[in-house]
Structures are given as structure tokens and as C-alpha cells.
Simulated scan of single mutants.
Amino acid sequence: MQIVFMNQMSRTDEQGHSSFAQVWIGEEEGVWSLGWRDIEPEGEAADDDWYEGGSWNELLCVYRHHLARKLAEGYRPIIEGIFNETGEIGGRNLHMQKLQCYSELHGSEELYTELCAWRRRKAASGRKAPYFIASNRVLRLISAFVPQSEEELLQLPGIGPAKASEHGAEWLEITAKIERKTTFPLDWVYHQLPEDVFVSWLYKQKEEKYKQELERYRIRRSMLLGIAEGATLEQLEERTSLSRRDLIEQLEGLEKEGYDTEQLVQAELCTVPDAEQAAVWKAFEELGDTFLKPVLQRVYGQEKGGEEVGGTEKLYERLRLIRIRFRREESSQASAG
């Protein structure tokens, strides 16, 4: 095997003891390998194989995810620039990132739990998704810094005048009961938050980001292989553990990227009468393809719930599959014109 990339890594623990390792990429006859090697004090090596296969793109996803985890554990590269870290640490979002880091490490869990309960009640009464009310990060920031006035609320990233006006009074009613140990403004966070702790936190965020990226890549690859093999949505559910709704969203994404999904679309629509498909197509032409509810009502009526085909959700599934074809045709005609 030929080693095409290697970087030395080191870590120093709280007692001052140093550990050394290597991350490497190798290739042999079109097969890529990726691994981590711990260098023992006696000079012995302990290998941890991270990847072996023929996909360079998948290898990169695995590399970023696993390496971010090692960096979060305190390892640092002897050769800098693995993630362009010097450019990212110290950028324009530094203030926001440091406040977020501090809030996650030092926030009050009791206050955060109370704020989450408030958000659930607010979302239920307004019939909105909780994240429309406030993100977890915003609630973490409030739980850590315990603002006591609207002016202080506005110093927290993610809270602007509109959000403060809408929810500020209720947040301040909750925080007024808490005796805080810190003050505003929050410049003191820069000095109190150790740099190595902050950098490790940043890499932890990257680890989660790259984990999701790797999962998306593997789902997409599994879907493309399944489509090529003639798999149905039901079979893809078993392969990917995604719901049918999520699978169709993935299918729509693949279609936008230019992949041929017709084999799967055809397999799922083969039992839908031609007249019904034609009626849906005509509705898309007349009503547009952005919103599905008007098309559903035009084709199936206000009262029909789709019981004979498995419910309204099944009808929406049909509409989305036909919409894939409709958009493909519209795109093709636009390109030809």
C-alpha cells in the first residue's frame, strides 16, 4: 500500500504528559484506506482502521468526522491547516461562538429546563414548531447569562428587537427569580474561557457537523444503489431507516442534482390510474407546483381523505412523485427553449 498523506498529531494532558499519533491515507489498486495510529512510548504502534473502500468522497467524509473527534479530545496537528482552523478561529463570529461555548459549559440546567417547558407551552398554544419560538442555543444563552432587562437580552446572539419584543417580558419574568453570578456586558467571557477549552468545543461542533454530512452521504449512496437495483420505497425504508416521507424528500433532492430517479418513480406510480395522473398534471399546470394542498383539493375534492389508498398522506406522496416528473419536464422544456 502506498501512503499518500500523513500528519503527525500530539496531545498534552493536564499532568503535562504528551501523547503522539498519526493520521494517514493510503491507496492500493484503487482501494482507499484511512486510519489512526497511536504511538506508544516504547515506540510500538496501535492502529485503528477508519475506512477501507473505493469511494474517495466517502473517505473524505469519514476523515473529517473522525479527525474532528480526535481534535475535540485535545489532539493537535504538527502541520496546521487540516480544517483551515487558524482562519476560522478568530473570524467575525468569534464573539458569538465564545458566548455559545460558555453557555453550553456553564449554563444552569434547571433554568434551561424551565425555559424549554415554557417553549413547549408557547408552541402548543400558538400551534407552532418549538424552534420557531426559540432555538436551543438561545435558551442556553439565557440560562447561562440570566439577563434581567431587555437591554441585556439584546446583547445575546440570536435575540433581536423583534424576538425581544415578542418574548422578552416572559423570559425576564422567569430570569427575575434567579440570582446570577455574572454581569453584563459579557466581555469577561473572553478572559474567563480557556482557549484550549474553546478550541476543543469548536472541534466538537465540527464533529457533529461532519457526522451528519457522513450520514447524508451514505443515505444518498444507498438510495442511488437501490434505485439502480430497482428497489421500492418499502425496501429503501429498510435499508436507510428513513420514513417514506423523508425518502421522497431525498428523491426530490437527487432529482434536483441531476440524478435519474425515474425507475423508482415509475415503480411507485404504476398502480395509479393514468386519468388520475393526468388530472394531477393538469392541476400543476394551472395552479403551480409550489404548494400541494390546492392541487390535492382540486383533484381529490375538499372532503376526500384518500381512505381507499391509505389516507391523505398517501395522496400527498402521489402528488410529490408526480411533481418530480412535472418539474423534470418543465426543466427540460426550459433548457430546450
Rank of each mutant, 00 (worst) to 15 (best):
I3M: 12
M9V: 07
G26M: 10
G26Q: 10
G26L: 09
E29R: 11
V31C: 08
S33M: 13
G35L: 08
R37P: 01
D49Q: 12
W50Y: 04
Y51E: 00
G53Y: 08
G53V: 04
G54P: 01
S55E: 06
L59K: 03
C61N: 04
V62Q: 03
H65V: 02
R69N: 09
A72E: 08
Y75H: 06
P77I: 00
I78V: 15
I82Y: 12
F83D: 04
N84D: 14
E88I: 08
R92I: 15
Q100E: 07
Y102S: 08
E110F: 11
E110M: 13
E114F: 07
C116F: 09
W118R: 03
R120D: 13
R120H: 15
R121L: 11
G126Q: 15
R127S: 14
I133M: 07
S135G: 08
F145H: 06
P157W: 05
S165R: 13
E166L: 08
H167I: 07
G168N: 04
A169Y: 02
L172S: 02
T175H: 00
A176I: 02
K177W: 10
I178Q: 01
L186E: 01
Q192A: 14
Q192S: 14
L193I: 02
L193R: 05
P194F: 06
P194T: 05
K206Y: 06
E207C: 00
E208L: 07
K211R: 14
K211F: 06
R216F: 03
R218H: 00
R221L: 10
M223G: 05
M223T: 05
M223P: 06
L224G: 00
L225G: 08
L225P: 04
G226P: 01
G226E: 00
G230A: 08
L236N: 02
E238M: 11
L247N: 02
L247P: 00
E249I: 09
E249D: 14
L251M: 09
E252Y: 03
K256D: 11
E257C: 04
E257T: 04
E257P: 00
T261C: 09
E262F: 14
Q263I: 10
P273M: 10
D274F: 13
Q277A: 13
T290L: 13
L292F: 13
L292H: 10
K293Y: 14
V295H: 02
Q297Y: 11
Y300H: 13
E307R: 15
G311W: 11
L315Q: 07
Y316I: 00
E317Y: 06
L321D: 06
L321F: 12
I322Y: 05
S331Y: 13
A334N: 11
